[in-house]
Structures are given as structure tokens and as C-alpha cells.
Amino acid sequence: MTGPLGWLFDAQVVIAGHAILWREIVGNLFGLASAVGGMRRRVWAWPVGIVGNVLLFTVFLGGVFHTPQARDLYGQAGRQVFFVIVSVYGWVRWRQLQRANERAGAPQDAPVVVPRWAGWSGWATIVVVGVVGTVGFAMLFRELGSWGPWADAWIFTGSMLATYGMARGWIEFWLIWIAVDAVGVPLLLKAGYYPSAVLYLVYAGVVVYGFVVWWRARGERPVRTAEADEQVVV
């Protein structure tokens, strides 16, 4: 890739003797902004997150795109694709709820969803998908030659569950992110993706705070129209 676009794609900064891609830094900053938007229950969190996903997809295929790390983390790259898919679902869902709230007289800047616990059925989904997904993707990533397949598989599966949980308004999605971060930080440090590892640590702080914010907001009175809409939107 040549020209200005090529320069932007390959631009690097050297930190403590390590070459770091600017798109890894920028992609993670978009991800952090999306997490803050999710904590505040704002619709813009979804499109902002999608921009970060697209950037990070190219970063984690280090061998394919000849990045300084030169390691292919198929789980990390693949989850960016699924992030986009689930984020489109979340974006549409939250936008529908926002419109329903506005029709009921709520301010435009009001939080979109009322946080709630997933309940027994939700937890059954989380556990089953978490276990089956981790085992299945670990086997797949190992065959593909992914670096750290088991950790990569849990990060992939847990991230999907957390993003879906956020779209549904489940408080538990913050707890899933904590479990993802606990595995993700050591993996990324060992693989040489230092900005992503550091941002994972920052995410951990945001996630803990976000859990407290959503837990406290669980008793909010829902807008009646949005509550009715909640029953038909899946």
C-alpha cells in the first residue's frame, strides 16, 4: 500500500524500544470510548466501537499484514468481525428503544436501557455458550495455528457474550468483561501487543466502575413505551 493511505496504515511509534502501530493505539482508544458510552447507556457507543473493531482487525493479523508483532491471533482478529455484527444488532436495538423513549416524552439524552439481571435463563445461556464456545474455538484456533489458542478462544467467546449482554441490558456483561480482561492482559503482553494490553488494564477499571453504575441504575423506572418495545425486540 502506497501514498498517504499507506503511510497511515503503516505509521508506527517506538515506545521503550518496541515499534507500535498507531492504528493499534487509535483502535483501542475507540474501544475505550465505546466502553464509556456503554456505561452511560448512549447509542453512539455502538458506531464508535465499530470503528475501533475495523482498525484492530488488521492489527491482530500481524503475520498477514506484516505488523511489528508478526503474530496472528485469529481469536482476537475474528472477534472484531463478530463485534461488528453484534454491534449492529445492539445499535439497532438501542436506537429502537431510544425512539420509543422519545415518543413517551423522555429527553433525547436520556439513558436508552434500564439495566437488569439476566436471570436464570440468561445465566444458562452465558454458561453453556461460554463453555462450548471456548472449547470449540480453541480447537479451531489451534488448527489454524493461532498463538495461545485456549486463551484466545475464551477472549473471543467471552467478548461475544459481553457484547450481546450489553445489547440486552444485562448487568452481568460487565462481569464477563472482567473475566475477559483477566485472560487478555497476560496473552497480549506475551504476544507483544503492548498498547492493547495496557488498554485492557484501563478497560478493567472502566468495567468495574461501569458495573457499579449499572447495578445502581437497575431500579430505575422504565419508560412505559420502551418497556412494551422491550417485549417485542429480540
Rank of each mutant, 00 (worst) to 15 (best):
G78V: 11
P4M: 07
I15F: 11
L199M: 11
G49N: 08
F137C: 11
W7M: 12
A19F: 09
Y74S: 13
V127M: 13
A33Q: 01
R42F: 01
R42P: 03
L29H: 12
A197E: 09
F83M: 00
G165H: 00
L29W: 06
V213D: 04
V202H: 05
Y203V: 14
Y203C: 14
W177H: 12
F83H: 13
E230D: 14
V86G: 09
G37M: 05
R221Y: 01
A182S: 11
V131L: 13
G192A: 01
Q231E: 11
Q231I: 00
W215V: 00
G205V: 00
V185K: 09
V26L: 15
W7N: 12
V135Y: 13
W123V: 08
T134E: 03
D181H: 04
V223E: 12
V207S: 12
E143M: 05
S121Y: 05
G119I: 00
L144F: 07
A104P: 06
P47S: 02
S87T: 02
V86C: 06
W147Q: 12
F65I: 10
E24G: 08
V112W: 09
A182P: 06
W120H: 13
F9T: 11
Y164A: 11
F137E: 10
H66K: 15
S34L: 05
R168G: 04
D72T: 09
A197K: 10
F60G: 02
A16T: 05
I25C: 10
G3Q: 09
A182M: 12
W120E: 14
V128K: 06
G62N: 03
T125A: 10
A100K: 07
G78A: 01
P47E: 08
R99G: 04
Q231F: 02
G62Q: 04
A35R: 00
R79E: 12
A77M: 04
A45T: 03
G122K: 01
W215Y: 15
Q98V: 01
G62P: 03
F173W: 07
W150R: 07
Q69K: 03
V183K: 06
L201F: 03
E227H: 10
T58C: 00
F137R: 06
G90V: 04
Y194A: 03
W7I: 14
Q12A: 11
Y209W: 09
A77C: 02
V208T: 12
V207C: 08
F82L: 14
R41H: 10
A45Q: 05
V212E: 15
R224Q: 15
K190I: 15
A110Q: 04
A191N: 01
A124W: 12
V64Q: 04
W147D: 11
F60S: 04
S196A: 07
G130D: 04
Y74A: 10
S159F: 14
L61R: 10
A118Q: 09
W46D: 01
F83W: 13
I178H: 08
V36D: 06
W117H: 15
V64K: 03
F83P: 01
L140R: 01
A151D: 12
F60P: 02
W177V: 02
L144G: 13
R95L: 06
E230C: 04
Q108A: 09
